[in-house]
């Protein structure tokens, strides 16, 4: 399972954030302990035995010298609070500046569009023919800053890969940007962080960080049109695909299926997960998803498909060939 944790950063941004957090954790932790120590001391200092007479004569006019001493301590406490908060403010500001300083001329640009409940991912390229479109899986080269342009076509979502950076919302009517940079190879999981309806819980994606050559290979493979079916079964499967409601929503480049309501399936078999990080991409899961996705992810937009067993097997053969 890919990692999804702010505590184990894989990039400079998440790293800076968590070190800021640890600094605050230690300082506030110390403050907490000191405050609690004072509290305990105050409690045991002159306590009465449990059940002592509550109606005891109260100390209406406490001794002025004692009061003065206490007010000095209180003032010191307040002054220290102010100093600590000021340090936090400065440190937070510096970290914030550093987070936003990733700009680089030669960068990769990835557009992410949030949908209920999956992620459309496309790699910007000046030449339209070189634009790669995929879903729920983002590959980026290690050590290179990547610019993400984030938007939404329906409701507000939030783009979050905790191992790499904090979140940025996808707001309809606005385009937000964020930069990511990964220093460590690996697969990191991200998840929608703004409640977006029924299947908010199952709106995840993965970020695959790999060496540039590997990334380039992946990119080129994604750029190609769908693989032609090589076996009879796959051919039949394509037929099933093109003659069923699948084509109403999905694209398989190189065929007549070109609708963009649901995820692009041109290279669906190359992806690690199905249904926006809900299932591992295995034949069994794929079958279950195609036949009755509502069992797996209730409320999602994909209708159930009543396929003959033979047709289903053929379709699975075809889909699994779409590397």
């Amino acid at each position: 399972m890919p990692s999804q944790s702010a505590l184990s950063p894989a990039g400079p941004q998440a790293g800076r954030i968590i070190s800021l957090w640890w600094m605050m954790f230690y300082v506030t932790g110390a403050v907490f302990l000191i405050v609690m120590a004072f509290l305990m001391a105050a409690l045991v200092r002159r306590r009465r035995p449990y059940g002592g007479a509550a109606a005891d004569v109260p100390d209406v006019r406490p001794e002025p010298s004692g009061e003065r001493r206490m007010s000095h301590v209180v003032l010191t406490g307040v002054a220290l609070t102010v100093v600590i908060l000021f340090v936090f403010l400065v440190r937070s500001y510096v970290t914030g500046r550093a987070l936003d300083s990733l700009h680089e001329q030669d960068h990769l640009t990835v557009k992410v569009v949030g949908h209920q409940w999956w992620w459309e991912v496309s790699y910007d390229n000046a030449t339209a023919a070189y634009t790669v479109t995929t879903a729920n899986e983002i590959h980026i080269p290690v050590g290179r800053p990547v610019l993400f342009k984030l938007s939404s076509t329906d409701v507000i979502h939030s783009f979050w890969v905790p191992n790499l950076h904090g979140k940025t919302d996808l707001v309809p009517g606005h385009e937000n940007v964020t930069w990511l940079k990964a220093d460590r190879e690996g697969v990191y999981r991200g998840q929608c962080a703004e409640f977006c309806g029924h299947q908010h819980a199952h709106m995840a994606f993965t970020v695959v960080v790999e060496p540039y050559e590997k990334f380039k290979a992946w990119y080129d493979a994604q750029l190609a049109a769908a693989q032609e079916p090589s076996t009879e079964s796959q051919k039949q499967g394509r037929q099933v695909f093109l003659s069923s409601p699948c084509v109403m929503c999905h694209t398989v480049r190189g065929t007549d299926a070109g609708s963009r309501v649901g995820p692009d399936l041109t290279h669906v078999a190359s992806r690690g997960t199905l249904a926006a990080g809900t299932l591992e991409n295995t034949r069994g899961h794929l079958a279950g998803w195609v036949v009755d996705s509502q069992q797996i992810k209730p409320g999602n937009r994909m209708p159930p498909n009543n396929l003959e067993p033979a047709d289903l097997q053929a379709l699975l053969d075809y889909l699994q060939s779409l590397k």
């Binding site: 998440a14 954030i17 936090f88 440190r91 970290t95 939030s158 950076h165 940025t168 962080a193």
Partner: peptide
């Protein structure tokens, strides 16, 4: 106080 800091908030928000 931790969440008041924008960078930390971006991680822990929501």
């Amino acid at each position: 106080v931790m969440q008041g800091a924008v960078p930390v908030d971006l991680q822990v928000h929501d």
